[in-house]
């Protein structure tokens, strides 16, 4: 997907899975193990995301100013 470039008309089709080859899965045990696959897609949580930006600085300055 590229944002705002897809004409809506073909989007539904575009969102449909296309045929893809699958690795052979000898037995169901192998399958179960995939639930432990670490894809690393997700980080810890919001509180680990460091932000040090203009918005935070503005917030801090404003809050301090109004407290005086």
């Amino acid at each position: 997907m590229s944002f705002d470039k897809d004409p809506k008309k073909t989007l539904e089709e575009d969102d449909e899975f296309e045929d893809f080859p699958v690795d052979t899965w000898p037995d169901s045990e192998t399958l179960r193990e995939t639930s432990n696959v670490q894809t690393n897609l997700w980080q810890e949580d919001w509180d680990d995301v460091e932000v040090d930006d203009d918005f935070t600085k503005e917030l801090q300055a404003e809050l301090e100013k109004r407290q005086q």
């Binding site: 899975f17 296309e18 893809f20 080859p21 699958v22 690795d23 696959v37």
Partner: peptide
Amino acid sequence: RCFEMLASQQTVTPALRRNMHR
């Protein structure tokens, strides 16, 4: 779960990648 199953495939073909994108 769907993404994990796709990502666990050994052979990453373009079709597989497009499905991951979906």
